[in-house]
Amino acid sequence: MANIELFNKFTDRHAAVTDGVFAIAMTILVLEIAVPTMADISSGVVLKDYFINFLAPSILIYFISFYIVYNFWENTVVLFNFKKISYAILTLNMLTMATVCLIPFATGFLFRFYNYFDVNIFFSLLILVISLLYIVMFMLLIKNNFSEYFDKKDEIKTTIQDSYDDGIEFPNLKLYIRGVTLTLFYILLAPVISSVISIILAFISPMLSLLSFLLILVLTFIIRIKRGSKDSLENVHLTDDEKELVGNIRKSIYGE
């Protein structure tokens, strides 16, 4: 019991550190926007050129990066709602945090060289790597917290497909469960899809490559609207603890 309490305290401290990382990352994003000196602005024409060619794109990039970081923070909030969190998952989360800390640097890079396709590819690859790390973490979390479903996957698959026309099958996890886990998986896929599209568009238009990340906002909104009424637990046989767990995840997703 003492070891469990110690680990719970360690997990709470870990969550606090994670929140701190995100708070700092979101704050220093704006600091990457350089303020010109009087020596740089010699006339109204130069100032206008600065607004058009640097400040306006930088503010757009700032808001896009800010929302991306916020989206990753939302994923982390869901992560700490799971009851069974292993040291391996916490270590993987710290690796993810280290990668998240690179976003302000990549954003500053974009501020200065947003019109170069290779800089856009660098930024997109960074977001893709972070997105994939989150998917790996949640695969492990679902496996740890719903391990009993592995032994009854065929029964659960039949139940879901009979009662719900959008049954889920994770071949790698062998997990078949209806509801918020499917919504969560869709939400985790949103930045992956946006990153891949951004990499492709970087060869066509750097600005379109950046704007493609707005898909995260659009897809997440659509997923929550479309899935909200379907994420009930009425037809899923869960224990009280499991219902509480999934209920907490639902609250994190929908803010209910």
Rank of each mutant, 00 (worst) to 15 (best):
I4D: 07
H14P: 05
H14K: 03
A15M: 14
G20M: 09
V21M: 10
I28M: 08
P36C: 02
P36K: 01
T37G: 04
N53I: 15
N53F: 12
F54V: 14
A56K: 07
Y62P: 00
Y67V: 13
F72A: 02
F80W: 07
N81M: 11
N81H: 13
F82Y: 13
I85D: 05
I89P: 15
N93F: 01
N93Q: 12
M94E: 02
L95Y: 00
P104Q: 02
P104R: 12
L110S: 15
R112Y: 07
F113H: 10
N120S: 10
L125D: 10
L125Y: 10
S131E: 02
I142R: 02
F146Y: 11
S147R: 14
K152L: 06
D154W: 04
T158P: 01
T159A: 05
D165A: 09
I168K: 05
K174R: 06
R178D: 08
V180L: 03
V180Y: 02
V180D: 11
L184T: 07
S195H: 14
S195Q: 12
V196H: 11
I197E: 01
I200V: 11
I200C: 05
P206L: 02
L210A: 03
S212C: 09
F213Q: 05
L215V: 12
L219M: 08
I223Q: 06
R227C: 01
S229G: 05
D231K: 00
S232N: 12
S232Y: 08
L233M: 13
N235H: 13
K243P: 08
V246I: 14
N248P: 09
I249W: 01
R250H: 03
Y254H: 01
